[in-house]
Computed example of a mutant assay.
Amino acid sequence: METNVKAIELKDLWRRYKASGDGRARERLVVAYSPLVKYVAGRMASGLPAHVEEADLISYGLIGLISAIERFDLGREIKFETYAIPRIRGAIIDELRSLDWVPRSVRARAREIERANAKLEHKLQRAPTDEEMANELDMTMDEFQDALIQISNSTIAALDELWTVSDASGDQISLLDTLQDPDAPDPEKIVDASELKDRVADAIARLPEREKLVIALYYYENLTLREIGEVLGVTESRISQLHTKAVLRLRSRLQSEDAEAGL
C-alpha cells in the first residue's frame, strides 16, 4: 500500500514539474531519488583511493541527478532510474577527471598492458596468462601484480564508462544499462547498439573463466568487490586485480577490432 502511495505521489510530482516547472516539485523529486546517488557513489567509492571521500562523490552525483530530472522525458518508456544512473555516474566521473588526480604514469602503464594483451592475443589466439603478460612487459610477476593494483586503485575506468552509445536525443547511455534492463531505451534509437552489444558479449565470453565470473558478479549481480572475494574465497585485493585485468583485456580487444576495421 505504501509503495503504491509513493508511486502515485511521484507521478504527481513529475506531472507538476514537467507541466509548469514547479520548483518545489523538483526539489521533492531530488530528495525522492537521492538514494540513487548514494548507491552509485558507494559502488564507485569501493574502487577508488582512500583519500577520495564518498561525500564528495555524492555531491558530484547530485549534479547528475538534477540534470537527469530536468532532461527526463516522461514519454520515454523507460524507468527514470535506468535513465538517471548512468548520468549520475557520468557526473561523478567528469568531476574526477577535471581534478586530473590519476597519475600519468598509471595511465601510461594501463595503456602498456592493453597493448601487450592485444599483441599476445593476436599471436596466441587466446587470452594470455599473467606469466606471459609479465614476460612481454619485461616485468617480474610481482611487478605485474603490483601494476594491476596501482591501476585499480587509481583509475575510474569500468565497463559502463568504457562503452557508451548515443540515443536520438544525444544523451550518452551506458551499454551495460541497455544490456541489463528490460525497460532500456528502444534499440532503434541507439546508434549501432546491437552490433556493439554483440561485440561486448563476445569479448566477455572469451575472457578466462575467473575474470568472466568477476564481471558477471560485479556488473550483473551488483556484488561489491569485497562480496565477490567472499564468494570466491580470495582477498578483495585479488578480486580488484582480476577486475582490472578483465576491463583492460576487454578494452584492448575492442580497440584492436576497431583498428583492424579502420575505425
Rank of each mutant, 00 (worst) to 15 (best):
S105L: 08
I8R: 12
E257V: 13
L232I: 04
K212G: 13
T3D: 08
R71L: 07
A84V: 05
D183K: 12
I63S: 10
R16I: 07
L36P: 09
E211Y: 02
R251C: 03
P187W: 00
R15A: 12
N4C: 12
K119A: 07
I93G: 13
S105W: 10
A45S: 11
V31F: 14
F144P: 05
R206A: 08
K18G: 06
A157G: 10
R24A: 11
R76G: 01
E77M: 01
I93F: 09
S152K: 13
L48C: 13
E230P: 00
I63V: 14
M139C: 07
Q172Y: 12
L96C: 03
D167S: 02
L250A: 14
I149L: 15
T178N: 00
P86T: 04
E27P: 09
D258E: 15
R16M: 11
G61F: 13
N153G: 08
V231I: 08
A55M: 08
A193R: 08
S169P: 02
Q255D: 10
A41M: 06
S240I: 05
V30D: 00
R87W: 00
G262F: 13
K212D: 15
R115H: 09
L124A: 11
E209H: 07
R87N: 03
K212C: 08
L175H: 01
K119D: 13
Q255Y: 15
D130G: 07
H243E: 00
S152G: 12
A108K: 08
V214Q: 04
Y220Q: 10
E131V: 14
Y33G: 09
D192G: 02
E54S: 05
V165E: 04
D73T: 03
N135G: 07
R206L: 11
I85G: 01
D160T: 07
R15I: 13
I69D: 00
A201G: 07
R253T: 14
D181G: 00
L250M: 11
G23P: 12
Q125S: 05
D192C: 05
P182H: 03
K119C: 05
A116F: 03
E121G: 05
D181K: 01
D181Q: 09
I239M: 05
S67D: 10
R87Q: 02
L263D: 10
D171Q: 14
A84I: 06
S34R: 14
T178L: 00
I228Q: 07
E114F: 04
A118M: 09
M141I: 06
E211H: 02
R15C: 05
M44V: 13
R15F: 13
I113N: 09
L223G: 01
L213M: 08
S105C: 05
K18Y: 12
L124N: 09
L232F: 03
E77P: 01
F72N: 04
S174A: 04
V102W: 01
S59A: 15
I204V: 03
R43K: 12
L250R: 10
E95M: 08
G42W: 04
L263T: 07
A205H: 03
E95H: 09
V165G: 04
